[in-house]
């Protein structure tokens, strides 16, 4: 399990990295925390000819408050930093809640926020959470910069909007509206495993305790983050009674997902878990929104 030969570059600025990506194009792969890329290379499933190591680009590592109560995260911010940052806990409690569910503490000490997003593993907590929170990503190349909503960024299994010469440099999250609750529920064989199914829910209430806006996003049930539009429709404008939340969960399981079977879980079991976890997540999000 050794990777084939590759060229290695170690830039210290974003500009340098972008120039390397521009030069090598499809042959190059940016190296963030390496917690997915390195094993994939050791299995020889990915054989990039050039690695552009981002670990010495200090300008990509930060957690900053945004005007209006939001957040900015540099792409190379380590999971460990995010996990223990009070600003994250205060402004993006859903991200804060997700962090301990990501793999093991050893992996979190090395893995990065942007690395997880750019890798676009459909089982990744941060992928689903970013969509649920209405996050946006800044993508930069030598020819300029653009922004993409998380809901549009993920194109499928390990596929995103990123062009080969482009680098994900930042993730931004808007302030959560008042009376908004959140929850992340997942079932994993062992706590550090990829979840068999996970659900991130963000629920905003109006002053009558009716659902104003609900975002329910699943992980591990499709080729990317799967948003439960039908279930959200069930809740729209309604008071989230236990019966209604149960109905929304059943709708999610029936209409919003098309899970596949694998060695760990059949499609039927995944559907069942979606029903269970959606209900639990909505109940918890509702409790928190009322506070």
């Amino acid at each position: 399990m050794k990777p084939p030969p590759f060229e290695y570059y170690n830039p210290t600025t974003v500009d340098e990295a972008l120039s390397l990506l521009a030069e090598h194009g499809y042959d190059a792969k940016p190296l963030a925390g390496g917690q997915s890329l390195i094993p994939i290379m050791n299995f020889r499933l990915a054989q990039p000819a050039v690695l552009v190591d981002l670990n010495n680009i200090s300008e990509l590592s930060y957690i900053q408050p945004d005007e209006g109560g939001g957040l900015r995260l540099g792409a190379m911010t380590r999971h460990h930093q995010v996990e223990h940052d009070p600003l994250i806990a205060e402004r993006a409690p859903l991200i804060f809640e997700a962090m301990p569910m990501i793999a093991t503490s050893q992996i979190r000490s090395r893995g990065t926020f942007g690395g997880s997003i750019a890798h676009a593993d459909p089982s990744a907590e941060l992928v689903a959470v970013s969509v649920a929170l209405g996050g946006r990503f800044r993508l930069r190349s030598q020819s300029g910069e653009r922004e993409a909503a998380a809901s549009e960024f993920f194109l499928g299994m390990f596929a995103t909007l990123l062009e080969p010469q482009e680098l994900l440099v930042e993730a931004t999250f808007p302030a959560m509206p008042a009376r908004t609750g959140w929850a992340l529920m997942e079932v994993a064989r062992r706590p550090h495993d990829f979840a068999l199914v996970g659900v991130a829910a963000v629920l905003s209430l109006d002053d009558q305790d009716r659902c104003q806006d609900t975002r329910i996003v699943f992980l591990s049930v499709g080729d990317g983050p799967v948003t439960a539009h039908h279930a959200a429709e069930v809740l729209r404008g309604q008071a989230p009674t236990p019966e209604l939340m149960r109905a929304a969960a059943e709708t999610a399981a029936a209409d919003d997902i098309d899970p596949s079977s694998d060695i760990h879980a059949s499609a039927a079991y995944r559907r069942h878990l979606v029903k269970v976890l959606t209900r639990q997540a909505l109940e918890l999000a509702f409790e928190r929104a009322k506070l």
């Binding site: 079932v187 064989r189 068999l196 760990h264 879980a265 059949s266 039927a268 079991y269 069942h272």
Partner: peptide
């Protein structure tokens, strides 16, 4: 056994 098998 597994959770999946127990479910079945």
């Amino acid at each position: 056994l597994s959770p999946n098998r127990l479910f079945e």
